[in-house]
Design a protein around this nucleic acid. Sequence first.
DNA 1: TTATATGCAAATCGTTTGCCCCCAA
DNA 2: TTGGGGGCAAACGATTTGCATATAA
Lengths: 166, 166
Amino acid sequence: VKLTRRQIDERVTLLRQYCKTRGLPLTHQRQVIYSALAASETHPTPEEICSQVRREMPSVSLATVYKNIKFFLDLGLLREVTALHERQLLDANLEPHHHFVCQRCKTVMDIRERDLEPVRWTISPPPGIRISGYKVEVTGLCIRCARKTKTSRSSRRRKSNGNAKL
Amino acid sequence: VKLTRRQIDERVTLLRQYCKTRGLPLTHQRQVIYSALAASETHPTPEEICSQVRREMPSVSLATVYKNIKFFLDLGLLREVTALHERQLLDANLEPHHHFVCQRCKTVMDIRERDLEPVRWTISPPPGIRISGYKVEVTGLCIRCARKTKTSRSSRRRKSNGNAKL
DNA sequence: TTATATGCAAATCGTTTGCCCCCAA
DNA sequence: TTGGGGGCAAACGATTTGCATATAA
């Protein structure tokens, strides 16, 4: 999905508005980092974005790129391919199954395969690729976090992945 | 999904067979690590498995646990919750969409939301949780890797996530 | 016996933090 | 002017590696 120059500028304008309404400063590097992200056609790593940004602004530090990425994520102006990249989580369940991931505490719970309709294409799948399986990731809030959210006060980014039940 | 002692032993027997047919030694620690995994009801980290194993065998090193986890993954006796935990991958596409992940080179490609049927439950979703969305992860081999596989010779674990097209 | 695994410690990699200076508002 | 941001280097946490020793087959 390649964006035109104009579409990228629109994204930066969106960023500008977000910053303005929250009274946050919009620095030059922040703009350049965000347009590098918006212009990316793949799923870049922070390092890759940093190299990209350095073509235009050789002095940016990797730390600044990381800080801004977190900033954009918090604002919802950017997403992660997976929220579970922090550490390796193992799954000894060899049966095909799906997952529920709590977006607050990151707890993962299994969903039996038969509890969801099989995934189906509405068009023919892209030619050339070989498909071996489909895994659905249901996101939301687990019971514990859903309860806490009513009154708020968080259990964000728990280290343990606990025993919470669906 | 809590397994009975008997089911765990069956899993270890499976491991024993895999090792035997490949002529690989089945050490005491390998067995204990594998049963700790099979007995896990959650999605443990390597650290957590290590602590668990140490209750029975206090001398195991974390390095051994890591090496064995890789061993089990290679044999297909264990899975990861996500194959993309190694580094943070960013996704500037704010539209809801799905992903194709090449299990060999780890390239991620977007699938437009409308190209897959919406995910649906066959039973009513677990009460108490709050669901905010569904993301499908289609796994398989990308064009490049699918081609290479016929003749073999790999591009495993490429560092870049490339520009490969669906 | 012989190949492979283990344990330990050092190395590496990705990411975060502290601190001092600078800039956008 | 002033509070958040930027750059740098040190700190960190997770994972990997090198190597000498121990172990399964």
